[in-house]
Design a protein around this nucleic acid. Structure first.
Lengths: 150, 150
DNA sequence: CAAAACCGTTGGGGGCGCCAATGGTTTCTG
DNA sequence: CAGAAACCATTGGCGCCCCCAACGGTTTTG
């Protein structure tokens, strides 16, 4: 039986079946959940992503951060500015290549990262709460093949 | 020197495995593909979506359009303005409820919609080109369960 | 050693999602 | 049946994400 006669029931518009539309809606919900969670630590999604990448890649240039995360160099500048201002990363001129900055995580950054990683993971669990672990893995696998750079 | 050149082997950042991150990247690519395709007809994604919804829902109020598509009423106003200016939809005061506008598609709108639907579908095929039809259906099913409103 | 490639930085811009407020209209309710 | 509450379209404003162009300084290449 149709339980939703009274409530417009989301007409099955052709739009709603398009991957591009669904991706946009799902991404919006994911961003909302994660952003709200990270806000508890005064962090934003991009800041958390960059901080995490810095932690993994050790001393790394801003250009490489942009490349590995697919973020515009211009935006990297602003993000690293913020992270540095909060003492979460250090920005040192690279003596080997004076064009580059060597970005490194600080101990305060590591502490902050531990908390934001937890918050981010929890938000992602909420995002995929309706999925079984297997389905979650499947979604990740499919998205990885679609989210190709370029 | 040889290691440094290695084409950004996409470090396995923890970030990159998060659904929320993958969704953002995949959505960005989808939007890029669709937007570029629709630009050939001078349309944008939201305009196409609204036009499609209007075609399906017959005479419909702006509030309901916003509800079924999950778009803010404020944005609906701007979009309907554009569509009306281009003669793709008509906006008539609803005699039954003078608060509402009855939005209806015009013949020019139907013609435009036929072309943009084709372009949008093609862009979505390009987006999911690396997936088998079965995988594509699976992705749509999974996304539908994740993209829940609110 | 000049040209090309790369780096960080600045400036600009489009698109999307969200919230607050307002005047007009309809519906609910006491 | 009158006042309150809910709804509608509209205006205005905010923040985040994604992308491009240009420039001075540095390194690599031919």
């Amino acid at each position: 039986m149709s339980d939703d006669h009274d409530h417009h029931a989301y007409a099955p518009s052709r739009i709603r079946a398009l991957p591009s539309w669904l991706l946009g809606r799902a991404a919006a919900r994911g961003h909302r959940l994660v952003a709200d969670a990270l806000a508890a630590e005064g962090m934003r999604m991009m800041h958390h992503a960059v901080l995490s990448a810095v932690a993994e890649l050790g001393p790394v240039s801003q250009a490489e951060l942009g490349r590995t995360l697919g973020i515009d160099p211009k935006d990297i500048v602003a993000i690293v500015n913020d992270l540095q201002k909060d003492g979460l990363v250090t920005r040192t001129p690279d003596p080997k290549d004076r064009r580059k900055n060597a970005i490194e995580i600080s101990s305060a950054g590591e502490h902050r990262l531990r908390r934001t990683e937890k918050l981010g993971d929890e938000a992602n669990e909420r995002l995929t709460a309706d999925l079984t672990p297997a389905e979650r893995e499947q979604l990740i696998a499919l998205l990885t093949r679609i989210a190709l750079p370029r």
